[in-house]
Simulated assay, not measured.
Amino acid sequence: MPAESSRGLESVYRLHRGELLRFLTARTGDPGEAEDILQEVWFRLHRSADAPVANARAYLFRVAQNLVVDRLRERQRRMKRERLWLEEHAATAASGETLDPGRNAEEALLEKEETGLLAAAVETLPEGARRVFELHKQEGLSHAEVAMRLGISKSGVEKHMAVAMKYFRRALLD
């Protein structure tokens, strides 16, 4: 079989593209990654010199397999780096240095805004719903305990809580 140039490799690539894709999908387990590697095979063909290749199909599959191995090695290196970083920072935290486990500034700002909206909503609640809400949520009493303290039924407590929740949903969604 005569040696093939890069132009011949392109035609062999087109001929075996589907087979290469199945090969790569089987090797990686990820159709998206297989497509990426297939595209990289294509680029390698275009960047390669016009050196003759004795068996174009075997060459294409070898290039594809080498790219799969390269990606696997890179993934392993990245995982090792991340593991070492986590171990280092866990050791730093254990040594007494504090790491900030808190939320980022945006999350803190959003929480503060929601808290303000809820506080305003509590102020606008009807008197009965506000009292039930404060006893249940702020003082931690059960529905039965709230009912006994206010002299209403447990069903009445549940209805007042439903009214309060309706006000809160409206306050947060509007």
Rank of each mutant, 00 (worst) to 15 (best):
R169L: 12
H89A: 06
A164S: 05
V163E: 02
F133S: 02
E123Y: 07
N66C: 08
H160T: 03
R44S: 10
W42Q: 04
D30M: 09
E40D: 15
R17F: 08
R77D: 01
G156M: 00
R81E: 15
T98D: 05
A91K: 00
P52Y: 09
V132I: 02
E87H: 14
E127I: 07
A105R: 13
D100F: 13
V63C: 04
V122E: 11
M148W: 00
A108P: 05
H46D: 10
V41G: 09
V163H: 00
T124H: 02
S155N: 10
E134Y: 00
N66I: 09
P52K: 07
L150K: 07
T115V: 03
L109T: 07
W85C: 03
P31T: 01
L60Y: 00
R75Y: 04
V68E: 01
H136K: 07
R22I: 08
Q138D: 08
Y13V: 05
L117F: 04
Y13A: 13
G18E: 12
R170A: 15
G32V: 06
D100K: 01
M148C: 06
N104L: 10
E33C: 08
A144Y: 04
F23E: 11
Q76L: 15
R22F: 09
L86P: 03
L110F: 10
L9F: 03
A121D: 05
A26Y: 12
L86H: 09
P31V: 02
V12R: 10
R131E: 15
A49V: 11
A147M: 05
V157M: 00
E113I: 13
G156Y: 07
L45F: 01
K112G: 14
D100V: 06
E40R: 10
P101W: 14
A91Y: 05
L86M: 11
E87N: 11
R7S: 13
E33T: 10
D174G: 12
V12L: 13
F168C: 04
L118S: 03
F43C: 10
V69N: 08
L38H: 05
G32C: 03
E97I: 10
R14S: 11
V69Q: 09
S5Q: 11
L24R: 05
T25F: 05
L21F: 15
E4K: 11
M148F: 01
P52F: 05
R73I: 05
S6D: 05
V157L: 00
A144F: 06
Q39D: 09
V12W: 00
S142E: 01
N104A: 13
L67Y: 07
R130G: 12
T92Y: 13
R81K: 04
G140H: 04
A90E: 15
E19F: 08
A91D: 02
R14I: 10
L109C: 03
A162N: 06
L9N: 12
E113F: 09
R131T: 14
F61G: 01
R83E: 15
A105V: 05
G96I: 08
H46Y: 06
A129M: 03
L45Q: 06
L125F: 06
A3P: 09
V53P: 10
A34S: 04
Q138W: 08
R71P: 03
L67N: 00
Y13W: 14
T92L: 06
A3Y: 12
Q39N: 12
G96T: 12
E113D: 10
T124M: 06
A56S: 14
L72Y: 02
E106M: 13
A3L: 11
G32D: 13
A90I: 14
E134I: 12
L45C: 04
R57I: 01
H16A: 04
L67R: 04
E74I: 06
